[in-house]
Simulated scan of single mutants.
Amino acid sequence: MKSYHFITNWELEASCAEVYKILKASDDLPRWWPSVYLKVKTIENGGENGLGKTIELYTKGWLPYTLRWQSRVTEVHPDDHSGFSLEALGDFVGRGIWTFTQEGPMCKIVYDWKIEAEKPLLKYLSFLFKPIFSANHHWAMRKGLESLKLELRRVRGESDVPAPPPPTFT
């Protein structure tokens, strides 16, 4: 009951190279996706193209709890910008796979997130609150798409882009 498998589909007008560059720059997540990423700290830079890069994350959703976990890049596709994979450890244990496909001017993004909850609150109450915990994840990903669209506009130098709200700590 503590297992979760989410597949998120995003689509936006962008090149896969633009999206790849933004999502791979994990240290910037709290700046442009502040509704979820409160703090990110690199603990190992990894090798060429970021393979093996390991970060500590402090994250939240709309529910009143936070998560502490690590992410390690396990696979990269820098030549065609088609995605990367990561391993999660800590309050989550599992893997995430980002896949990017260019279709004309649109970048289609799939995030396949398969994890087990290890944080006691999630681990022991999943049998009861799994739909609420799942809704929390879907909220976080909706916020991610909104934030990614704004970040693309900022990267492109559009002048009318609002600044992201400051992160709130719970």
Score class of each variant (00 low, 15 high):
98 W>A: 04
96 G>F: 04
72 R>C: 01
77 H>K: 13
85 S>Y: 14
99 T>M: 09
97 I>H: 15
101 T>H: 15
75 E>M: 06
74 T>R: 02
99 T>G: 10
101 T>Q: 15
101 T>S: 14
79 D>V: 13
86 L>Y: 14
98 W>K: 08
90 G>Q: 02
92 F>A: 07
84 F>N: 08
97 I>E: 14
94 G>R: 03
90 G>C: 02
75 E>T: 06
94 G>H: 02
85 S>E: 14
77 H>N: 14
96 G>I: 05
77 H>G: 07
79 D>W: 11
81 H>I: 05
81 H>Y: 15
97 I>A: 14
72 R>E: 02
92 F>T: 05
71 S>C: 00
76 V>R: 01
84 F>Y: 13
78 P>Q: 00
73 V>Y: 03
100 F>C: 05
77 H>S: 12
75 E>L: 09
71 S>E: 00
95 R>M: 10
78 P>L: 03
87 E>V: 02
79 D>L: 13
98 W>Y: 12
80 D>K: 09
90 G>T: 02
82 S>V: 02
93 V>L: 11
74 T>C: 04
90 G>A: 04
80 D>V: 03
89 L>G: 13
91 D>G: 09
86 L>S: 12
101 T>G: 12
80 D>I: 07
97 I>Q: 15
88 A>N: 14
79 D>E: 15
75 E>H: 08
84 F>V: 05
71 S>K: 00
83 G>S: 05
84 F>D: 08
94 G>V: 04
78 P>Y: 01
98 W>T: 07
94 G>T: 01
99 T>R: 15
72 R>K: 04
101 T>I: 14
73 V>N: 00
73 V>D: 00
99 T>H: 11
98 W>P: 08
76 V>H: 02
77 H>A: 13
96 G>M: 01
91 D>P: 08
79 D>P: 07
78 P>R: 00
82 S>L: 04
74 T>K: 01
76 V>A: 04
89 L>N: 14
71 S>I: 01
99 T>V: 12
95 R>K: 14
72 R>P: 02
88 A>C: 13
81 H>E: 07
100 F>A: 04
83 G>D: 06
101 T>L: 12
80 D>G: 07
88 A>L: 15
90 G>N: 05
78 P>A: 01
78 P>C: 03
93 V>Q: 12
88 A>Y: 13
75 E>Y: 06
87 E>T: 05
76 V>C: 02
95 R>C: 10
77 H>L: 10
93 V>C: 10
80 D>L: 06
80 D>M: 05
88 A>I: 10
90 G>H: 04
76 V>G: 02
85 S>P: 10
87 E>A: 10
74 T>H: 03
100 F>P: 07
98 W>G: 05
83 G>W: 04
99 T>P: 08
98 W>F: 14
82 S>H: 01
87 E>H: 12
90 G>W: 03
92 F>K: 07
73 V>G: 00
101 T>R: 15
87 E>C: 08
82 S>T: 07
71 S>A: 03
91 D>H: 10
86 L>D: 15
71 S>V: 01
94 G>A: 05
95 R>W: 11
88 A>P: 08
84 F>Q: 08
95 R>D: 10
77 H>E: 11
82 S>M: 03
86 L>Q: 12
84 F>C: 06
77 H>V: 07
89 L>Y: 10
88 A>V: 10
72 R>T: 06
97 I>N: 14
71 S>M: 00
72 R>F: 01
86 L>T: 11
